[in-house]
């Protein structure tokens, strides 16, 4: 029984490790980090909601190999991303370039925040304006209020 459990545990633990089996050698920690950053912001065209760092698809493997090859040849991040976009299209970027087609996408958060601020400002201004306009109590109301307060006072003392 324990053996079964142990082998099951081994299987579960080995799964993620085997998912990304290719091994690359890097000259420094920074280079390795650069590779991780690049592959995590490039999107796999086959398995569309994964980046190429996580994906197991053969195409992602090829793309990782190309990123590594270009890095070894001294290419800049921009050059590497451009080379892959030239083959697979803008689709492979999780962060698309700001241009006419993507401006709406980039602007939406700012527009939403601005809209929210406008609504809040509107509410505040309106409540302030109303607060200024409020009518003071009439003599009749004042007399009634005083009577109620006096009754309360009496009740408390009683």
């Amino acid at each position: 029984m324990r053996h079964v459990f142990l082998s099951f545990l081994l299987m579960v633990l080995a799964g993620p490790a085997a998912a990304n089996a290719d091994v690359y050698q890097f000259e420094s920690q920074q280079e390795e980090q650069r590779f991780q950053d690049l592959t995590s912001e490039l999107r796999c065209p086959k398995c569309q909601n994964q980046n190429i760092a996580d994906s197991n698809a053969p195409i992602s493997k090829d793309m990782r190999a190309e990123v590594y090859r270009m890095m070894s040849d001294g290419a800049s991040d921009q050059e590497i991303v451009d080379a892959l976009v030239a083959r697979f299209g803008e689709f492979v970027r999780y962060k698309p370039e700001v241009d006419q087609r993507t401006i709406l996408l980039w602007a939406t958060p700012a527009v939403a925040v601005l809209g929210g601020l406008l609504v809040v400002a509107g509410v505040v201004i309106r409540s302030r304006r109303n607060a200024g306009k409020e009518e003071p109590m009439s003599a009749e109301e004042k007399a009634r209020a005083e009577k109620i307060l006096a009754e309360l006072e009496q009740n408390r003392n009683a």
């Binding site: 086959k46 698809a57 195409i59 090829d62 190309e66 083959r87 299209g89």
Partner: peptide, 12 residues
């Protein structure tokens, strides 16, 4: 090796 396929952006 899929080199031309890669340059053509073949993904499947």
């Amino acid at each position: 090796k899929g080199t031309l396929g890669f340059d053509l952006g073949v993904y499947g």
